[in-house]
Simulated scan of single mutants.
Amino acid sequence: MTNDNTTHFGFKEVPKQEKVALVRGVFDSVASQYDVMNDLMSLGIHRIWKRVAVQLANVREGDQVLDLAGGTGDLTTLFEKRVGKKGRVVLADINAAMLRTGRDRLINRGLAGNIEYAQVNAECLPFADNTFDCVCIGFGLRNVTDKDAALRSMYRVLKPGGRVIVLEFSHPTDPITEKVYDFYSFNLLPKIGAIVAKDEDSYRYLAESIRMHPKQDELKRMMEEAGLERCEYFNMTQGIVAVHRGYKF
């Protein structure tokens, strides 16, 4: 049970001021193998989850998009195609190693003109009020120390009429899926991490962080308390992943 000065790092309780450094250590370690591990962890299905999230974002040509926890740039690549040359996508991440990996990948793909990069903390975004048509955070909210502060910050930088998209691992909706998922997460995933990324502990943390993340209805309530309206969520793969969407009016 956490108090005002502590938070969860996986199943561990740690001082709030230490979590950012701990999470940074995880992603510094896995950055170079992050995409390979994503494919192995999800059997490639993460690409479908991301496409669904972008579709639900309803991004149009000329829009301004903030891709938070954008990591190696998968969502930014999809958004870039939709906003076109008149639009802008900001690939943002708190982790410098992940941001460098994403920037290098996008430059190698020839994507540069309408993409910017920013190392930011989601809890205190360094952008003006009412800047973006869409703020998306993909598989990153669970790693944020103060999720409520992050959602409020996302709401602040969103334009009226804009939407927040949260793509995140969530909680299975049926007991059979939950049992299979638990076995995979705590028995197989760390071993895959040890072999491929040479880091068993980081992938054990990632599995634990998913279990500590708010359930679907709780996250919807948190988004509403941050000021977002018409909040809803869409379960995918029996609730293993969910996309939450909320609007600013």
Score class of each variant (00 low, 15 high):
V26M: 01
A21K: 08
A21R: 13
D28P: 14
D28C: 13
F11I: 09
M37K: 10
E18R: 10
F11D: 10
F27Y: 14
V36W: 05
K12P: 00
G44T: 12
M37W: 02
D28L: 07
N38L: 12
N38R: 11
S32W: 01
M41A: 12
N38C: 08
M41V: 11
L22V: 07
M37Q: 00
E18F: 04
V23M: 02
V26H: 03
R24A: 14
G10W: 05
D35R: 07
A31M: 08
G10K: 01
V26I: 15
V14H: 09
K19C: 04
V30L: 06
L43I: 09
P15K: 00
V20W: 01
V23T: 05
A21E: 03
Q33W: 01
V20H: 11
V20D: 13
F27I: 15
F27P: 13
Q33Y: 02
F11S: 05
S29M: 05
P15L: 02
A31Q: 05
L43G: 14
M37N: 03
Y34H: 10
S32Q: 10
V30S: 05
S29I: 12
D35Q: 06
L40Y: 03
S32G: 14
G10M: 05
A21S: 15
L43M: 14
P15T: 00
A31Y: 10
R24E: 14
K19H: 04
M37T: 09
M41Q: 10
V20Y: 01
Q33G: 01
D35T: 10
M41R: 08
D28W: 09
L40P: 06
V30T: 08
K16M: 15
S32V: 14
V20F: 03
D28K: 13
A21P: 09
E13C: 05
S42V: 08
V23I: 13
D39I: 02
